[in-house]
Design a protein around this nucleic acid. Structure first.
Lengths: 219, 219
DNA sequence: ATATAAAATTAGGCTAACCTAAAAATACTT
DNA sequence: AAGTATTTTTAGGTTAGCCTAATTTTATAT
């Protein structure tokens, strides 16, 4: 069995690898888990004995297949719970993270499969993050930051890169929701501000920082 | 904040007090929590410092008002989750205990209030146990074991005293469900076997052991 | 290539929640 | 009321997961 601490390490290693690639450093883990580097060194050595990670002294860790599968199944649980919290319990998308963080550690395969069914087998969580299937596989997606699209593009908002409450609340306040159609009318050469039209109706100005964090697919 | 261990102690003390009244003994706690008596002594002393229990050396513990409130709110959470598991996720009543045991420790007032609403403010869990309100108050009930009723009584099945899987499965197999009407046609003087009619249709024989564990209200 | 800075590890310690074995307190039996 | 049995407590110890301070290793800059 994997302990709570182990699960959190696995998830953190998985996410840091997603973000930066390659091995995950002790300091990066210490930072995201908010523990000392010494604790991390200690802990990952024990995880290596359990074959959850491959550890190369002073160089970092990577997940083993087992570790990776467990990490993904925690992410699966987290995202399914987030869907539930928003679609069934009426929470807003900026309110669900901490609760899902607790729920994701509940262990019952049957529970998760029944939850998945209850939710209608959703493909993505409320932030547009893909939900892996029970075998740990993710669907492929072609979503990229809106920033990478040229003027004239017509796209659909499918997710957000940044999950901070302030960003989510900014989007809510500005009536931007997943599924919205975004037409790029012009881009300021100077500061990369985007002039867009949302759902063929509202015109808006989006800063570089915003469009960098909006994930979209071509329409 | 109360730790997982503290919550489990509080719940155990609450339930043992319900069952036996008076102070709860070290050995009874050790038994239900499956830890050594020495560990219990140790732990309840710490809980006493935190004012979760009143501890009288060598005599036992009782809950303080704070401890009692926390215990009841854990029971509230447990029962609400059980309702959810059965009514929304399709679990059977003999499958939900262990999962609810994990879910009950998730901390978010808002989550529980939203769950309560989502479930339509249920009054009882799938075993007929009453669900306390957010302020820790239980509705009054007049339910008693069927064993205490004389021949000729007409009652409604509202709960079970015994929550063991084997008993729950026995009831399922014999098509006895909460809400059923039970008419006591006769009682064997010799062994207190009950001759009953269920929902005005099926005749059944229920052993003393069974009727002792069926909670009913008069009709 | 050497000096310095940064990152990682080692060494030694802490706390929460458990344990066993021995001692003390309480309860039971006659 | 005394002696035995049971329950509870005390004493001392373990493990998981964390800590700080000191040391070693790796990276960076001249």
């Amino acid at each position: 069995m994997t302990s709570l601490a182990e699960e959190n390490y696995l998830k953190a290693i998985y996410k840091l690898h997603e973000k930066n690639g390659g091995m995950v450093s002790t300091s990066a883990l210490a930072e995201t888990l908010e523990v000392s580097a010494a604790s991390v060194t200690d802990f990952i050595k024990k995880m290596a004995v359990k074959k959850l990670v491959a550890y190369e002294k002073s160089r970092g860790v990577r997940l083993t297949d087992t570790g990776k599968f467990i990490a993904i199944s925690i992410i699966r649980k987290h995202r399914l719970w987030e869907v539930w919290l928003v679609s069934k319990l009426g929470f807003k998308w900026d309110e669900v993270h901490d609760i899902a963080e607790q729920l994701e550690h509940v262990t019952s395969e049957e529970l998760i499969e029944n939850l998945d069914k209850h939710l209608g087998y959703p493909k993505a969580d409320p932030h547009g993050d893909l939900i892996p299937d029970a075998r740990g596989r993710f669907a492929k997606t072609s979503s990229k930051p809106l920033l990478e699209y040229p003027a004239g593009s017509k796209v659909k908002l499918t997710g957000v890169e940044n999950h901070s409450n302030s960003f989510l609340q900014y989007l809510t306040k500005n009536q931007l929701s997943l599924g919205d159609e975004i037409m790029v009318e012009a881009i300021e050469e100077f500061d990369e501000t985007f002039h867009v039209k949302i759902n063929k109706k509202h015109q808006k100005l989006l800063s570089r920082e915003v469009v960098k964090n909006l994930l979209v697919v071509p329409l």
